[in-house]
Design a protein around this nucleic acid. Sequence first.
RNA 1: GUCUCCAUCGUCUAGUGGUUAGGACACCGGGUUUUCAUCCCGGCAACGGGGUUUCGAUUACCCCUGGAGAUGCCA
Length: 500
Amino acid sequence: MSVRVRYAPSPTGLQHIGGIRTALFNYFFARANGGSFILRIEDTDRERSTPEALEDLYSTLEWLGINYDEGPGKDGGFGPYVQSEREQLYKDKAAELISSGKAYPCFCSSERLDVIREEQKAAKKSIGYDRYCRGLSPDEADARIKAGEKYVIRLKVPLEGKTVFDDIILGQTGRKNKDINPDPVILKTDGFPTYHLANVIDDHAMGITHIMRAQEWIPSGPLHVLIYEAFGWKPPAYCHLPMVMGKDGQKLSKRHGSTSVSDFRKNGYLPEALVNFVSLLGWSYDDSREFFSMEDLCSLFSLEKINKSPAVFDYKKLDWFNGQYLRMKDPEELKEMLLPLLAGEGLISNPPSSGERGIFNGAFNIIRERLKLLNDVVPMLRFLFTDPGIGNAEDAIPKKMDASEAAKALVLGEKLLLEAADPPDASDEDACEAWDEVMDGRFREKAEKEKLKIGAMLQPLRLAVTASKVSPPLFPAIRLLGLDESLKRIKRLIDTLKNM
RNA sequence: GUCUCCAUCGUCUAGUGGUUAGGACACCGGGUUUUCAUCCCGGCAACGGGGUUUCGAUUACCCCUGGAGAUGCCA
C-alpha cells in the first residue's frame, strides 16, 4: 500500500514554525517513499477561520516549495479537501454513532460546563465533563431535539479498560479509558465537527496511511483510536513528532519573537535556509552532514532518524544557515532579490535606473559576504543612494586621538582624494580594483609618513562618507559614491570636528 | 489536581554494554584585514540523581528529580 500522508492546518492564523515543520516532515516522508502528500483545510472552527489565514497558508507553502499532490484545487478522488465543504458527512457519521450507541446528544449549556469546571478546579479534582447527559434515554433526547433544544454530540468513552496505539517513534503508548477526556464533544452546536471527529473521518475517508503530527496530540491519541473503533475502522500508523520550543523551553509562540513563516520571509530569510534549519529540528541524517536541499530531504528523510525529545528553536543558527545560503546563492538571482528591497525603502527607483543598477552592481561584490539577511542590504548601502547626514561625529575620532587630530587626518585624506584619478566605471571590474589598490597604496604611504595607523587614517573618512562606524570597504565605497560627493561629505565633517 | 511524553555540551545533535563521548551553532582566544563581515586556526563545554542487571553501564530496567504537553462546543 503506498504512503498517503497529510498536512491538515486550520486557517486561524499565520503559518508558524511548528506547523510547517509538521508539513515538511510529512512532505519529505511522502516523497522519500513515493507516496502522496495531501493538503486538507480544517476550517471547522468558524469563529476563528479567516480567508487571510488561508491565503497565508498557500503563499507559505509555495514560498517554501512544498507542492501538495492532492488538496483544494487538486482533486485526487478524495475531495473535497476543505472540511467546511464536508459538513454533511460529519453530521451523518455522528448520527451513525448515536444509533449505534457510541455517542449521545448533550444539552448542557456552556454556562453549566463553566460552573462545574470551576468547582472541579477549586476542589482540585480532575477536570472534565461530568457525563450528565450520558444517561438520558433516547426517547427523552429525541423529544428535546424535536422541541428545538440546542445540543452537541458527545462520544461515549468507555468507563473501563484501556486504549493504546503504537507509535513509530515512541512505541506503544496509551491510557486507561477512565483517564481519557470524559465524553468529549464530537459535533458542536453549530453542526460542525470538532477536530477529533473530523480528523478521524477524513483520514479514514482519504486513505491516510500515516498520521504525522506534533506530540501535543499524544494525549488525544487513544481518543481517536476509540473513534476509529466506534466506526469499526482500523487506525492508520501514528508518528508523533517532537515539539518545537522557544528558548525558555516552552512551546514556541509569538512571545519568543518571529514565529510565522511570513515574518521570516519579510525579515529577509531564504526559504532554503529555513527549510534546511527546520528539517534539523528533531531529525538528523548522520553525525556530520547538515546541509540539505529540498531535493536531498525528499530522498534522504526517514522516520527512524526522528528523535523523541523536544527541540529548541535557535534563531542564531538559523541566521548562520541564512548567511551560508546567501553566499551560495547565484549572484544574479541574489541581485534581483536585493534591488526591490532598496526600492522599497525609496533608496532607488522602481524599476531601478541604469545608473542605480550600475552603482548597485559595483557594490554587490563588497556587500555579498557581509549579508546575513537580505534586508541587511538596506543599511549597508543607504549611504550610496542618499545623504546619510553626519551621523555621530564622535565616532569619527579614532582611539587615542582628539577631534582636531581626527580633522587633520581627514584633511590628509581629502588631499589624497583631490589628487586621485577619476574612478572608472563600476562595470570595469579590473580598472576598479586597480583604482582601489592605487588609493590603498597612497593612503598607506601617507599614513606612514605621518606616523598614523592606517586605521586611524581611514576611520574618520569612513564616518564622513557613510555616517557609520561600520561600512563596506572604504575605497570601493568612495569610488561608487563619486569623488565630488565624497569630498563634500568629508568637508562637512571636517567643519564639524573643528567646532568640537 | 489528574493523565501522558521527554532527559548527551548553553542550543541542534551523533554515538556505543568497554570511545580521549564526535560534529555544528553560540561563546572565548589567535591569524588574515581598513571598520564590519567573511575565511583560517585553537579553546571552552555534556551523558540530571539514586538503585538494579552486568566483569563493565552514558547505553538495558526501576525509582526520583526536572522539563514539557494535554485536560475546550481551538486545532
